[in-house]
């Protein structure tokens, strides 16, 4: 019984991974791709790891450690990529409603230019 439950959990996780991959293909700009791609796959990866742990019960402690590691590091890399995208001047998609960070950055650039 336990292996079947584990395999079903892995299946749900894999479904979330496929949704994340669809998201990364369909979304218009890098920020939305991070939203739909890497972050939506976090739940899929964690579910798949836990499911594999239930399937092969000996591996469960190790897999919980790996799942925790993914949960802690994934927001960091998402944030680093988003910040890099904004700092590198990657434009936001046409659908974007507003960008308050660019508004906050803009006056500073002018100050630096006049100071130098």
């Amino acid at each position: 019984m336990l292996p079947i439950i584990g395999a079903l959990v892995v299946l749900v996780g894999a479904a979330f991974m496929v949704l994340a991959a669809i998201g990364i293909i369909r979304m218009p700009d890098p920020y939305n791709r991070i939203q739909a791609g890497t972050k939506a796959s976090t739940l899929g990866v964690v579910l798949a790891l836990i499911g594999l742990g239930i399937y092969e019960i000996d591996l469960l402690p190790k897999l919980i450690v790996i799942a925790l590691f993914v949960l802690i590091t994934n927001p960091l890399s998402s944030h680093a990529l988003a910040r890099a995208a904004h700092a590198a001047g990657v434009p936001l998609a046409d659908e974007t409603v507003r960008d308050e960070l660019a508004a906050a950055r803009a006056p500073k650039v002018i100050e630096e230019e006049t100071a130098s």
């Binding site: 991959a21 990364i24 890098p30 791609g37 890497t38 796959s41 990866v45 790996i66 993914v70 990529l81």
Partner: peptide, 11 residues
């Protein structure tokens, strides 16, 4: 971003 997703799924 795609590379990040690929490594995540590979685990």
């Amino acid at each position: 971003i795609a590379l990040d997703l690929l490594t995540l799924i590979t685990i």
